[in-house]
Design a protein around this nucleic acid. Structure first.
Lengths: 248, 248
DNA sequence: CGCGATTTTGAGCCATGTCAATCGGAGTGG
DNA sequence: CCACTCCGATTGACATGGCTCAAAATCGCG
């Protein structure tokens, strides 16, 4: 997906994405365009590198990746997913036990020039503010994930993750309220949600049998978005098999 | 604890703590001292406020607090604990669903002056670097927490949290390898680790019966620190009741 | 058409949660 | 110094959500 046609479009998309996340005005966006380097690309399955130089940020312009820690025994914990408009900073490299970034699809990104210091001098306060805001959003998502793992049941976790992804994709114009594409397997969901693959499958079956959603080959369809959203925030459950014939 | 004797000592302690976390050199520490405002205090149980102005950081100089989100039904998820040397920034205030900071003991903090921009002009690169590093450490801890909740068993989670706290306290000279004080109840552990209070109690009993540690009225004693550390990283379990009489 | 990856199902078990008491220590008032 | 009270720690009995093991069934793809 998202074959680059020319170098330009990538930058345009990047800016649009970041502007969405960070609420940049047109002026700031224009200045940022001038600062953008060439785009880099990775193919699905590859490990995506953090920016070479300190103090640079890599802005994702297309594709999906996930951030995870790989355990010695082969298991992995997925911390979250990065979509267009998200930033990769040096924090992904300087940790004691660094996490790994893996491309789920082909991925394209551009490097933003050494930011805060330089930009401040240039009075580009709006951009600093915008970037900061985007990074804060990313940090907030890890708190959402902690709440999900700490307090939610399996069904709520699945619903919560799918709703989070849907909402982020909607902001990027890559989804509507009832459906979206996600290059994820049930194993990815399991490794994200602290569940076994098999149990993820059971949960999806239940949701399907209750007519709440379907998840087939990367296409998620929310048949009852309203109900799913309430499940996702922990205020509703699945009625005990009223609707359909049986759960099996 | 930690009654302030005069305003000065708080600042001195603050700097020592931050220097520990951020590896500041003496010169940077000296400059930072000049920038410090008066200390503020909160009493145990109070809610600690983020810094009033944007772009300021509040540096904790003594006491414990925790960061949590409170759910409408009265439950709470504790995201982590803040100790001397940790920073409270505006990210704690600007979130869509902000988390709450609650003092577990009396707490003292100082405000650092508007940082990055100002300091950069003043060529205080070391301090910017130090602060950035300290914030990265705090972010890394939330990834550790995600791994803990996503992949560890109840026993491993308890061990992991206690070892994390011990190691942080050691760096502050508030603990040694075998014991430390923590103003926590079993309910705090439960709300941090995504477990029920009752199960936390069971786990602590097991660890006690196996002679690994004791946890009484806020005093944690690690009787077998080496074993606990291995449990904490998920590479060892508790032998099935070899040592003592019984688990009950 | 066959192969590897993914999804699906079933059976059985164990970790962890819930409910319901009891117990213990610290502070408080008499 | 004792009776009360409250909060936290403990315990037991029991229910269940989620895991493991094992095996089909399906799907994408060469």
């Amino acid at each position: 997906m998202s074959r680059r046609t020319k170098p330009r479009p990538a930058v345009e998309r990047a800016l649009a994405c970041l502007a969405t996340a960070a609420a940049l005005d047109l002026d700031a966006t224009e200045r940022l365009r001038l600062l953008c380097d060439r785009a880099e690309t990775w193919t699905a399955g590859e490990q995506v590198q953090p920016p070479q130089e300190n103090d640079r940020f890599r802005l994702i312009t297309s594709g999906w990746l996930y951030e995870a820690r790989l355990l010695p025994d082969g298991r992995r914990q997925i911390f979250g997913y990065l979509l267009p408009g998200d930033l990769i900073g040096r924090q992904h490299a300087t940790r004691a036990t660094p996490s790994v970034l893996l491309a789920l699809t082909d991925v394209e990104a551009v490097d933003l020039p050494p930011p805060v210091a330089t930009w401040t001098e240039h009075r580009q306060a709006a951009m600093v503010e915008g970037l900061t805001r985007a990074l804060e959003l990313q940090e907030e998502r890890s708190y959402d994930a902690l709440l999900r793992l700490g307090k939610f049941t399996a069904t709520e976790r699945v619903a919560n993750l799918l709703v989070e992804l849907r909402d982020r994709l909607i902001r990027l114009d890559l989804a509507d309220r009832e459906s979206f594409r996600a290059p994820l397997t049930q194993e990815h969901l399991a490794d994200t949600l602290g569940l076994s693959i098999i149990h993820v499958n059971r949960v999806l079956r239940q949701l399907r049998n209750h007519g709440v959603l379907t998840f087939k080959q990367g296409v998620v369809s929310l048949l009852q978005p309203e109900l799913l959203e309430r499940i996702a925030s922990g205020v509703a459950g699945l009625a005990h098999r009223q609707p359909a014939e049986s759960d099996s």
